[in-house]
Amino acid sequence: MHKIFSLSRKEQLAVQFILIAWACVVLIPLGVAVINSFKPNLGEVYRAPLALPSEWTWSNYAEAWVGANFGGYFLNSAIVSLSVVVIVCFCASTTAFVLVRMPFRGSALLFACFMIGVIIPIRLALAPLFTIVKGLGLLDTLTGLILVQSASMMPVAVFILTAFLKSVPSELEDAARMDGALPFQIYWRVVLPLIRPALATVALLSFVQAWNEYFLPLIFLQSSELYPLTLGIAEFRAQFSVQWHLMFAGILIMLAPTVIAFLLASRQFIEGLTQGGVKE
């Protein structure tokens, strides 16, 4: 590295000070959550929120998981998120495949419609969306929620996949066409393996988005046995807002999957952040 980027001893010290300061801002809330979630009783949380537990215990996690039904919420979140990932990956890749490789009259218009979905957030169309879901009898069902959340991810997913597909040459698909492969076969045997990197980004993006979504479940679910974690934790807070040790445990249960996903695939994450930055 050139010397313009290297720092003198003094400069290094100043820079480290600022960087550590922000690292503390980031880490302290998470650290406080971790230590307090292991405390045996509420008194200790209130008395000394910054101190280590006098005795480390998993009981808050057990209590949250079973007593506060975080186990059930977790299952619902998992069902919704995984379904959304599968649906979005399938629907967006078939759509992008046809739009890029088998264009027809009107395909540019169709793509423009998808781009409108990128531009205008679906939340603003809350009232008509609610009416449609209700009309289809899908209110207060996981199916309805899954479809709505999948649809909200479609524009960005189609955008990422069409851009990727345009960047790879079509000779492989031409070769398959010469050999008599039909679109289903080309999609399944040629295109799907080809777009795997972009598909991984889309899968990660839609998983995190679906797992973290609060607003859409709030609108479309009423029965608490269907609640995902985002609603479950809000419900828990409304009822037991003083049970901080349980809140901390619940929050950490909720964070675990996305943090793990991030640790496993931080590179795709950051790529997705810049590509999918179109919509947050």
Partner: peptide, 20 residues
């Protein structure tokens, strides 16, 4: 007609082999 119905075979510049 579709390529396959013309009964031609093609060799591409990039070879177009399926990587997987």
């Amino acid at each position: 007609e579709a390529p396959v119905d013309r009964d031609f075979a093609m060799v591409f510049q990039s070879y177009a082999l399926y990587p997987q």
